[in-house]
Computed example of a mutant assay.
Amino acid sequence: MEARARLVLSMDNRGHARPINPWKGGVIMISPRYILFAFALMVSLGASMVEARDPALSDRTLIVGTKEAPPFAMKSADGTWTGISIDLWRQIATDLNLKYELRETDLKGLLDGVASGSLDVAVAALTITPEREEAFDFTHPFHATGLGIAMAWKAGNPWVAVLKRVFSPTFLKVVVTLSVLLLAVGMLVWWFERKTNPQQFGGGPAKGIGSAFWWSAVTMTTVGYGDKAPVSLAGRVVALIWMFGGIIMISGFTAAIASSLTVAQLESPVKGPGDLSKVRVGTITNSTAASYLRDKRIGYQTYQTAPEGLQAVAEGKIQALVYDAPLLRYLINQGFKGSLQVLPNTFLRQDYGIALPPRSALRETVNRVLLQKISEPAWQDTVYKYLGE
């Protein structure tokens, strides 16, 4: 008769499980915490096997939607795709051994595709927003930026703008204030010099004050003709104070003139988002910029692509195009350099992420690889390659 081994468990008075060998009668002590550890290990291995069998991570070819959004997603003449987002996705797919097929669509197609599940992934320059998060999932952000404003570069005659500034109420007010100050200093010198120095500041109040005004202006501008000079102690004290004060004043006046000359070509009705309501504005359909303008009650014209919007600015159909700042700068450098510009300041921070269908099995796995990739020095090289920053 064949013998069969059996494991018999009993509990001792200390609460330990006691397997009993039926042949030798020996007792082996096993702690309950080891039993719990073995159970947890089995559960973990089972979960890993379920994940590995997920078709999204194994044999199925993923449908990855994209759209042209230079420099994050760009399609070359031979149909190949490159860009910051595309390069990042390729690295993630390679590390996870994912098979995929790129499918081009528009922005609405990307958003609707991941929301419905007809697209497994959407890769472009997609901004993470609360509204989109309600419809589908995003990975962790891989790039932070903001909205920018593209304007026409003013290339007209800068002297026209300078003349406008010279005859502006603000500038004329400065000139009048300066003239009054010159007159006041001149009158002080005349008062002290009219008796002790009649040859230079005498001849009646009108003539004396006129000579003192002339001396005050010459001293302030540091020309120093030397044709008139105070000789009394009080007059010289006033002159000494005015010499130092004049240097400071003429420096500020010169800086104001230089500023008028240098910014004349940059004269624009829009200095920031607060001025958008005063001009004709455009943006891209279904974009974050469109939502911003709508929330701010700013009227706008929509365009299907950023190049179409920039062309409208160049032709004068609109005065400003509001869209993602890095995309605007890249496109202007490529096709509108010298005719359009992007204002230096951005607003409304935007975080770009990879879009996934709701509760996608890919999310956690892709996130782990994404975070690893963007922490590597090679990622900064990729960003610099396309953006130069």
Results as ranks from 00 to 15, higher is better:
L7S: 10
L9I: 11
M11Q: 13
D12Y: 07
N13Q: 12
G15S: 03
P19Y: 08
N21D: 15
K24H: 12
I28A: 13
I30R: 09
P32I: 05
L36P: 00
F37K: 15
V43K: 07
V43Q: 11
A47M: 09
V50S: 05
E51Q: 14
E51M: 15
P55V: 14
A56R: 07
L57D: 08
L57R: 13
S58T: 08
T61G: 01
V64K: 00
G65V: 04
K67N: 06
A69N: 09
A73I: 05
K75Y: 09
A77L: 08
G79L: 00
T82N: 13
S85V: 02
W89K: 05
A93S: 13
A93G: 06
L96C: 04
L96R: 11
K108S: 14
G113R: 01
V114E: 06
A115T: 04
V123A: 03
A124G: 07
L126T: 06
T127S: 15
T127W: 13
I128E: 03
T129W: 10
E131D: 14
E134W: 09
A135H: 04
D137Q: 08
T139L: 10
T145E: 06
I149Y: 10
A150I: 01
A150M: 01
G156M: 05
P158S: 10
W159N: 14
W159C: 07
V160W: 03
V160F: 06
V162R: 00
V162E: 01
F167K: 08
S168P: 00
V175D: 04
T177C: 15
L178V: 10
V189P: 00
R194G: 03
T196S: 15
I209C: 09
G210P: 04
W214K: 13
W214P: 02
S216D: 05
M220R: 12
T221Y: 09
T221R: 01
V223P: 02
V223K: 11
K228G: 04
A234H: 08
G235V: 02
L240P: 07
W242M: 00
M243N: 14
G245I: 03
G246M: 10
G246F: 03
I247C: 08
I248Q: 15
S251T: 11
F253E: 07
S260Q: 14
V263P: 00
Q265M: 12
G272H: 06
P273E: 06
G274D: 12
G274A: 13
S277G: 13
R280T: 03
T285S: 11
T288F: 04
A290S: 12
S291T: 13
G299E: 12
Y300K: 04
Y303Q: 02
A312P: 01
A314D: 08
A314R: 02
G316D: 12
L321M: 02
L327V: 15
L327T: 13
L328H: 00
L331V: 01
K337M: 07
N345E: 15
L348Q: 12
G353N: 04
P358S: 14
L362W: 12
V366K: 03
N367I: 06
R368S: 12
K373M: 11
P377L: 10
A378K: 13
T382F: 12
V383G: 02
V383H: 02
L387I: 01
G388N: 05
G388M: 03
